[in-house]
Amino acid sequence: MAKTSFHQLEEIFRTPAGVVYQCNRNNCFWLEFAGGISAFKIHDLLELKKRVEQINLEEMAHNTARVADVVILNLFRTERCFVLTLTDVLNLRELLQGAKVMLELNSILHDCLHAMAV
């Protein structure tokens, strides 16, 4: 993990497959998944979530061709290439969906507390 340390990170969401952290110091999110750690700006993290959700799981499961066993995702503005099996896709979906819900909840709480203070 370059130019940051784990003590500067706030855990957003965790599953057995990975973790999403927020780094306010660098205004980014860190995704720890499948043995790798990658930094994302919020719009890039949401783009990854969108791309993962667009993967046709039914097609992956039913297609007997060897090329259907994995999906490769190359994302703009990141050096990481994701090579995902069907199980990886499911695990990454769960992790990214949970992180998004936690971020939305945090935003709602912030808005409510700010409204009460005014």
Rank of each mutant, 00 (worst) to 15 (best):
K50Y: 08
R51K: 14
C81R: 15
T64W: 03
L95G: 05
L90G: 02
C81M: 11
E94F: 06
E59N: 14
F33S: 08
T78A: 07
A39V: 00
G36P: 00
N26P: 00
E79W: 06
G98Y: 05
N27E: 11
T4G: 07
L109I: 13
F76T: 09
D44C: 05
T87N: 07
F29L: 08
V67R: 14
A68R: 04
V118H: 09
N24P: 07
E53L: 12
C23G: 13
A65L: 14
W30K: 07
L95K: 06
K49N: 13
E104L: 07
K100R: 10
L96Y: 03
L45Q: 05
N91M: 01
F29T: 01
S107A: 15
V71I: 05
A2T: 10
T4L: 14
R25Y: 10
I55P: 04
F76H: 06
F76R: 09
R25W: 03
M116G: 05
K41F: 05
Q8P: 00
P16A: 15
I72T: 15
H7I: 12
E10H: 08
A2I: 11
I72S: 05
N56P: 09
D88W: 02
H114I: 02
R77Y: 08
L103H: 03
M116R: 13
K50V: 04
E94S: 11
K100M: 08
S107K: 15
M60L: 13
I42E: 12
T4C: 10
R80A: 06
L103K: 03
N27A: 09
K100Y: 09
A39Q: 02
V101T: 15
L84K: 01
V19H: 07
A115P: 00
I55W: 12
R93M: 04
H43T: 14
L45K: 08
N63P: 00
N91Q: 10
V52P: 01
A61Y: 03
L48T: 02
M102S: 12
M102P: 00
G35K: 13
A17H: 12
N26S: 11
F13E: 05
Q54E: 14
L45G: 07
V101G: 00
V101M: 06
V71Q: 04
H114M: 08
R51N: 11
Q8Y: 04
L86I: 13
F76C: 06
T78E: 05
H43E: 14
S5Q: 11
I37V: 12
A99L: 03
E53N: 15
R93C: 07
V19Q: 04
I42C: 04
V67K: 12
L45F: 05
R25A: 13
N26T: 10
G18I: 10
R77S: 10
